[in-house]
Amino acid sequence: MAWFLYVLIGLASGVISGMGIGGGAILIPALSIFCGMEQQAAQNTNLMYFIPTAAVALISHVKQGNIEKRSLPPVIILGLAGAAAGAFAAVRMDGSLLKKCFGYFLLAMSAYEIFRREKKGGTQNRKNEGMRNA
């Protein structure tokens, strides 16, 4: 019945992603706490799951012209370096230490979700925000 739990966890994090909260904030702790999965394996699962879902969402965003292309090149170039360095460190770290570090990162993200203020009015189109993201 383990597969049922996995589908359920995927389902929950998929719904949360629709809110614009990263699905990983639910998926990784759930796999770690409820399934006893090692931290690196849980993080790997989130990354792998993100690729097809993000690719599908991205196609529709490109078609609708929602991508701000001017901002992309410098963000992506240094981003790739950071992504390589971060992952290089993660796979070499002790699993329980990484779990602890992830916990602090999650705590910071939770504070952001709890204390952030909703912008009211303005010219920005809030109803389009975050709903089509994986």
């Binding site: 990263g22 699905g23 990983g24 904030a25 998926l27 990784i28 849980a42 993080q43 790997n44 989130n46 990354l47 410098p74 963000v75 992506i76 170039i77 240094l78 981003g79 790739l80 370096a81 950071g82 992504a83 390589a84 360095a85 971060g86 992952a87 290089f88 460190a89 993660a90 990484l98 570090c101 992830f102 990162f105 993200m109």
Partner: peptide, 14 residues
């Protein structure tokens, strides 16, 4: 980009 990339690589999310 650097900060977001490093966090995403290190924590597999975020």
């Amino acid at each position: 980009g650097l900060v977001a990339g490093a966090a995403n690589g290190l924590f597999g999310s975020g």
